[in-house]
C-alpha cells in the first residue's frame, strides 16, 4: 500500500518535470514565500535587537538622529504635497494629461541570490497580486537596483544590474561640462569572480559593471555619475546607476569602455521600491 503511494507520486513528479515545468517555479516560490517572510520578520525584529545588544549600539543617539531625520522628511513631505496640489491645479488649467503614469510601492527583500547564487537576483515579497509586472523597475534612493524578471502571485524575482545578462542604456551625467554633448553607452553586468582580489564586494564578489560603446574621443573623469538614458523605454531617463572608476579604449579602438561602480550596495538591501509604469494615459 505504501509503495503504491510512492509510485503514484513518482509518476506525478515525472509528469510535472516533463510536461508542466513552467508551473513549478511559481508553485515553489509561493510555497516558500510565507516561510521566507516569517524568517525575514524574525531577523528584522528579534535578530536585529539581539545583534544591536551585542554590538552595544548607542540607541539613544541613534534614536535622536532618526527622529530629527523623520521631522525633516515630514516637512519635505508636506512641501511635496503642496507642490503636487499646485501641479495638479496647473495641469487642470492647461488641460494637460501626463503621457505616462507611474506607481511606486515598497517591497521587502526576502531572499538574496536564490537557491544557487549564481545569478545576481533578489526575491521580493510582493508579486502580481500587488500589481507588480515583469519588466518593472526596482530602485532605492541611491540608484537603480534592477528589473523584475519573473513574477508569481506573492513574490517577484529581480534581475540586478550586476547580473551578467543585464543590459541598460546609459549616459554620462555631464550637465556641468559644456561642449561635450551626450556620451551614451550600454551598461553590461559584470558577472562573478570568486576569490582573487575583488574590487567590489556586493551580493557576490563581482566584477565592476562595464559601460561600453561610448564615443572614443571623450575620456570621462573618475567618479563621473552614470545615469539611465531613457532609450529603449525600459528605464526612465536620469536615474543614477553608478559612478565611473576608470576608462580605456576597447581592443578594436572603435569605442571607449569604462568600469562602473554600482551606486547601490546590493548586499545591504532589505526594502526596495518597485516603479510600475502604466501606459494608460487616463490613469490618475
Amino acid at each position: 500500500m505504501k509503495s503504491k503511494v510512492w509510485i503514484f507520486l513518482l509518476v506525478i513528479s515525472l509528469g510535472v518535470f516533463l510536461f508542466l515545468r513552467h508551473g513549478v517555479t511559481a508553485f515553489a516560490s509561493e510555497t516558500i514565500y510565507p516561510f521566507s517572510n516569517a524568517t525575514r520578520w524574525f531577523d528584522q525584529t528579534i535578530g536585529l535587537s539581539f545583534r544591536a545588544a551585542l554590538t552595544r549600539v548607542d540607541y539613544a543617539a541613534r534614536c535622536a538622529k532618526q527622529e530629527r531625520e523623520l521631522a525633516r522628511l515630514q516637512v519635505m513631505f508636506t512641501e511635496a504635497e503642496t507642490r503636487e496640489t499646485l501641479i495638479k491645479h496647473q495641469r487642470a488649467l492647461l488641460e494637460y494629461t501626463p503621457p505616462v503614469s507611474c506607481r511606486w510601492q515598497a517591497a521587502p527583500v526576502i531572499s538574496r541570490g536564490g537557491t544557487v547564487a549564481i545569478w545576481q537576483t533578489l526575491r521580493l515579497g510582493k508579486g502580481s497580486a500587488h500589481g507588480i509586472r515583469k519588466g518593472d523597475l526596482v530602485m532605492v534612493p541611491e540608484g537603480v537596483v534592477g528589473r523584475i524578471a519573473d513574477v508569481t502571485l506573492h513574490t517577484s524575482d529581480v534581475m540586478l544590474i550586476t547580473d551578467p545578462n543585464s543590459r541598460v542604456a546609459c549616459e554620462l551625467d555631464l550637465s556641468s561640462e559644456e561642449g561635450t554633448g551626450v556620451i551614451r553607452g550600454i551598461l553590461y553586468g559584470g558577472g562573478v569572480r570568486p576569490g582573487g582580489d575583488p574590487k567590489l564586494t556586493l551580493l557576490y564578489v563581482i566584477e565592476p559593471l562595464r559601460l561600453r560603446y561610448m564615443a572614443r574621443e571623450f575620456e570621462p573623469a573618475p567618479r563621473t555619475r552614470v545615469v539611465t538614458s531613457g532609450l529603449g523605454n525600459t528605464f526612465p531617463k536620469g536615474l543614477t546607476v553608478g559612478y565611473v572608476l576608470s576608462s580605456m579604449m576597447e581592443p578594436q579602438r572603435l569605442s571607449r569602455e569604462a568600469e562602473i561602480m554600482p551606486a547601490v550596495d546590493m548586499a545591504s538591501l532589505y526594502d526596495v521600491f518597485v516603479l510600475s509604469i502604466r501606459e494608460d494615459k487616463h490613469a490618475p
Binding site: I32, S36, G114, A267
Partner: peptide, 20 residues
Amino acid sequence: LLLAAVLQEMIPVTARLPVK
C-alpha cells in the same frame, strides 16, 4: 525539504564564503 529550501534561499553568500 521545505525547511531546506527556506534555508537555502535565506542564507546569503558572502565574500568570505562565496557559495550557497
